[in-house]
């Protein structure tokens, strides 16, 4: 095998390995998607770690802490179940009355069953 050919093959393998790494590594980072049904919009976790979204009933404030845990800090919903849930990391956080769904993405589950 010529030396130049060998260099090209090694370069090709290196690029493939890097592409593979970046493709799959990006799926393993902790990320969240925030669905707001009233707006038919999906947001991602902002760099500021604080997101204010307008749902069916009004504004919900969503915040993250340093450990990647998320909570609904403030919600206009009547029974405040979502606020009472407190900090969550790997499980979805849902406020049905205000139509807010916070999902950790790239998780190893297809869905979550709970009441």
């Amino acid at each position: 095998m010529q030396k130049n050919n060998l260099i090209f093959i090694i370069t090709l393998l290196a690029i493939s390995a890097l592409a593979y790494y970046f493709h799959f590594a990006s799926e393993k980072t902790t990320q969240y998607e925030i669905r707001v049904l009233a707006q038919n919009k999906t947001y991602l976790r902002p760099l500021s770690n604080r997101l204010i979204v307008k749902g069916y009933l009004g504004e919900s404030i969503i915040t993250w802490n340093m450990n990647d845990e998320v909570r609904i800090e403030k919600s206009p919903c009547p029974n405040q179940s979502c606020v009472k849930m407190g900090l969550c990391k790997s499980i979805p956080l849902i406020c049905v009355p205000n139509g807010i769904i916070i999902n950790p993405i790239a998780q190893k589950y297809d869905a979550v069953t709970g009441q």
Binding site: M85, G86, C88, S90, I91, K108, Y109, D110, A111, V112, T113, G114, Q115
Partner: peptide
Amino acid sequence: WAIAVLNPVEKSFLAT
């Protein structure tokens, strides 16, 4: 297909 069963007490997953 993997479905997580919620543990509402621990706020974690009880089972898969």
